[in-house]
């Protein structure tokens, strides 16, 4: 069998899930024998490639760039895994949803104007600063998700358990202490 093409992406999240991924330590070496990491924050690829077998998606869908990338990922990926609480539940990034309509504007004001130490002003450079979505979404509200790996972040052993099963073509099951939010 060909080596599997695996990708990881980082949408609206803190990158903690990726840190946890790096905590896989020596399993990473094992992985390196079986897979090609074709796209990831830790790999220098600009464009999400075609025909990816497995993609781990960290983070919630917060802005138009996130959404566009996610849709491209879905079209080009066989198995999509929501990776961590932000991807699964929208978690902390979604707290702004509670602010109701126009919450995107009010968080920008708070961050770039009220909280600015210098040069207050909301950056709006078309094509550079992606507009926020009116509502932060968990990944599965935007595209179909095949498997869910919750945790904030999911610890390395759980990532390992899921990856091992997915890479073997099996349906991963998180049971007992393996399933955990927060």
């Amino acid at each position: 069998m060909d080596r599997l093409k695996v990708a990881t992406v980082w949408l609206g999240g803190c990158s903690g899930c990726h840190m946890s991924f790096l905590d896989l330590d020596e399993f990473l070496l094992e992985l390196a024998d079986k897979i090609d990491l074709v796209y990831s924050p830790v790999v220098d690829t600009k464009e999400y490639p075609e025909n990816v077998d497995v993609c781990l998606v960290e983070g919630a869908v917060c802005n138009e760039d996130n959404l566009e990338l996610l849709r491209r990922i879905r079209a080009r990926t066989q198995v999509l895994v929501a990776f961590g609480d932000c991807a699964v539940t929208a978690n902390v990034p979604a707290i702004r949803n509670q602010l109701g309509l126009r919450n995107d504007e009010s968080v920008l004001q708070r961050a770039y104007v009220e909280g600015a130490q210098s040069n207050p002003g909301v950056p709006r450079h078309p094509g550079i600063v992606p507009p926020l979505l009116p509502r932060v979404l968990p990944v599965h509200e935007a595209v179909h998700v095949d498997y869910f790996l919750p945790g904030c972040p999911p610890p390395a052993d759980r990532i390992k358990a899921v990856l091992t099963q997915v890479l073997a073509g099996a349906e991963p099951r998180l049971e007992g202490p393996q399933l955990k939010f927060g």
Binding site: G100, P138, L179
Partner: peptide, 16 residues
């Protein structure tokens, strides 16, 4: 956890 709920299929209401 006991019931194996690994995600929520319904849209979150996000009330304040």
């Amino acid at each position: 956890y006991t019931l194996g709920m690994d995600h929520v299929r319904y849209e979150y209401c996000f009330p304040r």
